[in-house]
């Protein structure tokens, strides 16, 4: 299964991945309409690494764990693993209790702005290749199989 891997030295911290993540999960799929009319929480966290001389960044999202703690914590049955191993959240069933947020060791699940559900990376499985990958200007996130990722670790 392919997952998204962050390459810290390349990340500019521009936040385009977040913008495209929101767009990917919008109704309109239009970048302007998404940000003007829809309230969508991106499923990516862009973090700063502060050192005495520099600031660098990395983008983080759900690791689609083999044995996900979030699924076991989910009280409604909304969190599930699909047949391809992608950990997904069924928004129809999610009650936004944040039990998954409590156990995700990456802090990669966010409370949705609407307060009713959570937002997490679904690898854009419904729309092809992940939008964040396609739109990262510096290839700081890559969509790789485990074997490919190991080589680049």
């Amino acid at each position: 299964m392919r997952k998204i891997y962050a390459f810290e030295s390349k990340c500019l911290g521009c936040g385009l991945c977040e913008i495209y993540c929101r767009t990917a999960h919008s109704r309109s799929k239009d970048i302007v309409k998404t940000h003007k009319r829809e309230s969508i929480t991106s499923a990516i966290v862009v973090e700063e690494i502060l050192s005495s001389s520099t600031i660098s960044y990395f983008a983080l999202q759900c690791r689609h764990c083999e044995n996900p703690k979030c699924i076991k914590a989910c009280i409604s049955g909304a969190m599930y693993k699909d047949d391809n191993g992608v950990v997904r959240n069924n928004k129809e069933k999610c009650v936004g209790c944040l039990s998954c947020v409590l156990v995700c060791p990456f802090g990669a699940i966010k409370k949705n702005d609407d307060g009713k559900t959570v937002s997490k990376c679904d690898l854009c499985v419904d729309s092809g290749e992940p939008f964040c990958i396609k739109n990262c200007p510096n290839a700081a996130i890559k969509f790789l199989s485990e074997d490919e990722a190991r080589v680049l670790k």
Partner: peptide, 23 residues
């Protein structure tokens, strides 16, 4: 505020690459 940046670079890479979840 806590973030994944609380871990060192090595630890971050190890977790992002190798973490499998658990019970």
């Amino acid at each position: 505020d806590i973030g994944f940046n609380v871990y060192s670079k090595d630890e971050r890479t190890r977790k992002i690459w190798d973490y499998k979840g658990g019970y």
